[in-house]
Amino acid sequence: MTTLMAILIGCLYAASIYMMLRRSMVKLLIGLILLSNAANLLIFTVAGLERGVPPLIAQGAETITGPTADPLAQALILTAIVIAFGVLAFAVVLLHRAYEVIKTDDMNEMKGTD
C-alpha cells in the first residue's frame, strides 16, 4: 500500500511541476493545487498507513490497546489544507485580476518586469 501511495505521490509531484512549467496561467494554478495535495498526501503516508483506531484511551483503561492512527500527522494535514485553501483562494483572485489587467493567459507575454 505504501509503495502504491509513493508512486501516486510521485506522479502528483511530476504532474504539478509539468503543469507549472506550461505557459497558461490556469495550468499554473492547477499545478499549484496539485502540489499542495501531493505534499499533504506525503505527510499522510509517512506517518504510517495502518488500519488503526482513533487515539483515544477507552473509559477505565490506562493505555491505548492495539494500533492507533497518528493524530498529529492528521492535524498537520488539516492545517496545511486550510492554509492551502486560503492561499489558493487568493491565487485565484490574483490570476483573475491579472487576466483582467493584462488581458492574456500566456505567461510568455508577462515580461514587463524582467
Partner: peptide
C-alpha cells in the same frame, strides 16, 4: 469574513 471577501472580490471583478 475570509471566504466572503474572496467571493465578493471575484464578483466585483
Amino acid at each position: 469574513g475570509t471566504v466572503l471577501t474572496a467571493i465578493f472580490t471575484l464578483v466585483e471583478v
